[in-house]
Design a protein around this nucleic acid. Structure first.
Lengths: 219, 219
DNA sequence: CAATACATACCGTCAGTCGGTATTATAAGG
DNA sequence: CCTTATAATACCGACTGACGGTATGTATTG
């Protein structure tokens, strides 16, 4: 391929293809040669001109995915029409209502089954999502009186951990019956520490989401 | 090396060396050649005679580590001198009082920093530790009246998740001040759902453990 | 003599390198 | 303002060393 006047476009092409392949086949099973084959004429030298290692490509892809999510997070956090309690609810719901189409579920599943991506996801939730989104929303809820707690930071961490890890069907496989007990218990737990936020609507939506995931896995 | 009359001894040697290297350098950075170099004369053919892949060696090492832990878990679970509540307390304590020597802390840290090992650890806690140890102990506590809950399974999962992931200094780096708030909140949370189990003694021990870990990390 | 426990040479694949080339940006001189 | 020399950049593609894994052979055990 001939030299591109705007190298960012080449970088963008590489990252898009890398993301697609990483999600499709996992980090280890995607080779640089794979990327070259899908990039129509672009050479190995080109890739290594823009990135110094496969690892650096991985990190750039993670950042790209993170940046895309942050657009939605910002919208939710800065929404003037909702109070803290409502925002937190929206935030929780967003974890499994956006991905109601099967493609996104499949993508998430691939990501979660790759330890490298999963660890990145967990770390990012503690380093970005909690301090810049969940905690500020809870603090807003404290200010406007819609949430009561003395531990906004810790509550955020626990909430994210349980949603991301414990209740995540992609990490811990569960049957439909177990799912209901788990999410009901989570509701009871949150209510016990002052946040009555998992209503029947959210619970039902979440169970539906898990069931859809289990269906997809069986095939 | 000449043929060994007792091949299990060769297998044991390989696994011991593999475990040492995996922990020291991580899974990806340990090569089969590394193992050969440390196994004094044993060849690649020997390794691949006993294991069909590097992945299989990894799984065997994980099983080995798991089996070693299970000995301690069995002792705690089957101890006739303690009731359910006391056993659960012992179980929680064991996570950070055994490893009071720096070598074990360093080992755990290495394991936690390798996504492959970490995922294995999380999965095993859900598939083995919860159903065969934590949940039975909590059920015993319900029977003998020392623990009150309607959700023994879910409570076990939440407990393990928060101990293993959220409060784990090796996953989520925290300062001494943050540690105290986190563990206090965890105590409050558990108390709110009916298990008043994190007393001042456990809290202080845990903080000491984290501080020691942070000291080791600074060097 | 059959099964097992190894040794060794070898293979394909991979991430990464390096010397080279073509294109663009920069800047000096007319 | 336009040319021209020079430097910087974008990219090529053959090559390297290391890796996981295999095939074949050999000595030892049962």
């Amino acid at each position: 391929m001939s030299r591109n006047k705007y190298p960012e476009e080449t970088v963008k092409l590489i990252l898009e293809e890398a993301q697609k392949l990483f999600i499709e086949k996992g980090y280890d099973n995607t080779s640089i040669q794979d990327m070259i084959n899908h990039l129509g004429g672009l050479s190995k030298g080109a890739i290594y001109h823009h990135f110094k290692s496969k690892e650096e490509i991985f990190e750039a892809v993670c950042k790209k995915i993170g940046d895309e999510n942050i657009i939605y997070y910002n919208k939710m956090r800065d929404d003037k029409t909702q109070n803290g309690y409502e925002k937190l609810k929206t935030m929780i719901r967003s974890a499994y209502t956006n991905p109601n189409n099967d493609a996104v579920i499949a993508m998430m599943d691939k990501i979660m089954s790759d330890p490298k991506f999963l660890m990145n996801q967990i770390r990012e939730s503690y380093e970005v999502v909690v301090p810049y989104y969940i905690e500020p929303i809870i603090r807003e809820g404290i200010m406007d009186g819609s949430i009561q707690t003395d531990y906004p930071r810790e509550l955020s961490g626990v909430l994210i951990t349980l949603l991301n890890v414990w209740i995540n069907p992609m990490i811990h496989k569960t049957t439909t019956i177990e799912i209901r007990k788990k999410v009901e218990f989570l509701g009871f737990l949150l209510k016990s520490i002052g946040i009555d936020i998992l209503d029947e609507e959210i619970i039902v939506q979440y169970i539906k989401y898990c069931e859809r995931y289990n269906q997809l896995k069986q095939k």
